[in-house]
Design a protein around this nucleic acid. Structure first.
Lengths: 205, 205, 205, 205
DNA sequence: CATGAATGAGCGTTCATTCAT
DNA sequence: CATGAATGAACGCTCATTCAT
């Protein structure tokens, strides 16, 4: 019982520290994060941060992961039933892109990191994806379903998934870098690209 | 005569400084560049760097632009005659991607910078691209040519160009981030993606 | 108890830093103060100075104010009873001038600074002085008292105070700049000037 | 003939350098003067400045002297005839104060410098003033004339001159430091102070 | 657990001055 | 006489991290 409380409190403090870091990242970017600023904003002292995170890097990585998880959660959330596979793919990518654009710093930090621990989560071209939770895994499954149900022609889901995923990744990054924020424009661009690519997938194209 | 010598020597020193910077960028990344390190590596004193570059930013931007220009030069270089438009697009993107992968740090720095001066060069979604030298402009022109010659169906070159360009951009970045260096694999992935997208363009699809 | 100790120690270190700064100021002047020198002299590292003072300016201002306060304290200190107003004015200005000459760098720094925060303390011509603690306020009050008691003729204390104050200020600065240190000479010059100006104040001149 | 031309040109270049320095002093203050900036602004190169001035200090001193000379020239310039001595003293000090306020940086630099070379020019309390050109010398002479003509009572001109001069000096500096620029206010304050002091001088006070 | 002083290394930048050309 | 590259020292300041308390 005692131990559980402590554990809970520990997590709550970690959370507070992460929140402070988030505030800094959002207003000044990742490069502006410093233990000093985080500690001050979180209401703790510099030294104490090290009781919860090994070093600055761990803190930053933890935050980026948290941000990434939110993007993935938004993408994976339940969706209207009865959609065709194509429709679902498009709706999910719209969610994904919008969520990424809302947290651009985290998204860039995660998706462009070459830290091996992060790459385990974000890589798309490597290996056969094991964890199906990952975005690319989910996409692959959807395509497989499309093939199985006869909505799509018979192609290799893995390779098509990579084509689609990287295409949207490129568009999403451009939207972020070129600071596009008009929702309608974003939706239109994402949809355009995906529709075009899906054209070749449909059985009755 | 005298003056020209001086000018040449000046350029040669600027080059030496840029080279030193390049060495650092390539081994430690752009964020690790410091005037101190550059100066030491170039064999000059810190202060002297400022006789050649206004400030650190100018130096870094100059280097990134230099790198970017090399990538663009490789992409734009003359190409085998008699290729179909589709073939030329694919060949040029293969060159582009390979060149980017050879200078990954510069590519990322340029393509992900939100510095307005750099965005003028790199932006793809904004405005109607004026300068035809830019990659996206060239791509647009090629597509237009494909439409004009009847190789492609009648679509809007500008919007298709953006679909293609961003798709390849996403793939290129993933290749860089996930440190893919096997040339055959790179070529295969780039070609796969572009072929798929071009499927929908061909008149006799 | 613990906390008080810490507080005390903190103050003691601040003092040490201020003392080191003082040493530099006194031997080389305010312009020669640098964080590096201060830190070295105080026996700390440069960075640590910033745990006690926000920046160089704060340190320098703190020191100047400290010096100025000492001058004012000497001027304001209790004085022999039963003096006429004229006598008190003269005695106080002699104290003031002597104190200023003993801390010439601080005096100059404070009295010649155009930093708004400092001007709030040192300005003499501006506004109606609110805080009566200030030198000019005290002088004004003494003159008012002289008028009230009938020792002085009926004049405007504010404007006479400014005449007297600025006159002594000019003399004090000359004494400092021309490095006069003979006490007798100083006293004679200050007294001469004030006597002459007070001549016109006395009812029975 | 040749030599004279050279000499003239030399002076003209020195002048240009001094003018550039002046521009910097007036917009950024003396502390912001650097050989680099001066050279650039004057249209010469850094190294060449040293062909005309021994070092930065010489340049700065030369400029301050030049400024000071202008103030003195304005003060000494011919004046309306037929003025009483008191009136002339007051008029000249008004000129002096106004000129000083127009070149505040130079005035402060000169009058507060403890450089022996400059003190030879600016000192007021020291020695019996030899050169009668100096402000204090002129004032002394005017007072002597006032005594001789019977306008003033019989006092020691030297000591009264110092009383008056330092008083105005203090006021002038306060006007500069407190950034008073309203001409009417300036004239009023200067006149008030001098009138009050002169009260005691007049035979029929 | 928490503090926050202290370190030591680093940063970008500016400067007066020299000197080979 | 004039150039301007180069030096070497200094500047204010920030930082991640450690550790005695």
């Amino acid at each position: 019982m005692r131990k559980k409380m402590d554990q809970e409190q520990r997590e709550s403090i970690k959370s507070k520290i992460l929140d402070a870091t988030k505030t800094i990242v959002e207003s000044e970017g990742f490069d502006a994060v410093s233990i000093r600023k985080v500690a001050k904003l979180a209401g703790y002292t510099e030294g104490n941060i090290y009781n919860y995170f090994d070093d600055k890097d761990s803190l930053v990585i933890a935050l980026a992961q948290q941000g990434f998880q939110r993007i993935m959660k938004a993408t994976m959330a339940e969706i209207e039933e009865g959609l065709s596979v194509e429709e679902e793919i498009i709706q999910r990518f719209i969610r994904y892109t919008k969520a990424a654009i809302e947290m651009p710093e985290y998204y860039k930090r995660m998706m462009l990191s070459d830290n091996p621990k992060i790459l385990e989560i974000t890589s798309v071209l490597n290996d056969k994806t094991k964890e199906e939770k990952k975005g690319i895994g989910m996409l692959e499954n959807m395509i497989k379903k499309g093939v199985d149900t006869g909505e799509f022609i018979d192609i290799d889901p893995a390779s098509i998934a990579r084509i689609i995923w990287t295409a949207n990744f490129g568009l999403t990054l451009r939207l972020i870098v070129e600071k596009k924020s008009d929702e309608k424009e974003i939706v239109k661009l994402v949809e355009n690209q995906l529709r075009w690519i899906c054209n070749g997938l449909r059985k009755e194209g």
